[in-house]
């Protein structure tokens, strides 16, 4: 909370030094923000963006984890996948947007696809690493007790995989939120990105900052209500003392 206040303080200093065209007054931006949230279309934009980001992210999580697990269990596949991961991580999201625009046009397809394609390598690599880095000794121990395969997976392997997967998953969630706005800015007529595009056309720095506050604020909320509880749950044993 103190950090947030500090940022607003610096913002205020910036405004007083450079004037409202470069940085609008924080209060102006907040006022604009209240205005955006108050009208139905503004709220709609936020919901549309959130829906797209989550759709892409969930799709990437499902597909990425599924194939990551499969690839992790096979030496050949994991070697085979390496160049694909490198290529997928190397292609900038902006290039995917151009391709997606050609493929999907201006609807939901472009932002969802862009989020999907730019987060899936992270999630896939996280799951793959989790499987490969697990302690083989524990597998051997479970095998010595003849613990059935399914229990072995959930109780011995899954917790180790999750501890690798989780950081990648958290990074991917943050990334999906940024990428969706970028994709919308270039391709959509609705959504937070579209709101930003509008603000740009009108050289409306107050609205721009208001949208930025929305984006960052939502990211903080997601972290607080979704990531941290999950993190506490899956990593509770690490801070047991």
């Amino acid at each position: 909370m103190a950090g947030v206040c500090l940022i607003f303080a610096l913002w205020q200093i910036g405004f007083e030094t450079f004037g409202p065209l470069v940085l609008p007054a924080p209060l102006d931006a907040l006022e604009r923000l209240a205005h955006i949230v108050a009208v139905p279309s503004g709220l709609d934009y936020i919901l549309i963006t959130a829906r797209r980001a989550f759709a892409g992210f969930l799709l990437a999580s499902t597909v990425g984890i599924f194939f990551g697990l499969i690839a992790g269990w096979s030496n050949t596949l994991s070697l085979l996948c390496k160049p694909f991961i490198t290529v997928a991580l190397g292609v900038p999201p902006i290039a995917w947007i151009v391709l997606a625009l050609l493929w999907f046009g201006g609807g939901d397809g472009t932002p969802v696809f862009t989020v999907f394609i730019s987060t899936i390598p992270l999630i896939f690599a996280g799951a793959l690493q989790g499987v490969r880095m697990r302690e083989k000794e524990l597998d051997e121990m479970a095998q010595s007790f003849h613990v059935p395969l399914l229990q072995r997976f959930w109780q011995v392997q899954a917790p180790q995989i999750v501890s690798y997967l989780f950081p990648a998953w958290a990074t991917a969630l943050g990334l999906s939120w940024k990428v969706v706005v970028m994709a919308e800015l270039l391709s959509s007529t609705r959504g937070i990105g579209a709101g930003l595009a509008e603000a740009r056309v009108n050289i409306d720095t107050a609205a721009t900052m208001a949208w930025i506050v929305v984006i960052v604020g939502l990211l903080l909320v997601i972290e607080g209500i979704l990531l941290n509880p999950v993190k506490d749950y899956v990593e509770g044993w690490k801070h047991a003392d």
Binding site: E137, L138, E140, M141, S144, F145, Q155, V156, P159, W237
Partner: peptide, 12 residues
């Protein structure tokens, strides 16, 4: 049953 050199308890 096998008792290993390391305890091999599940830390979670």
């Amino acid at each position: 049953a096998i008792l290993f050199q390391e305890h091999r308890l599940l830390s979670w």
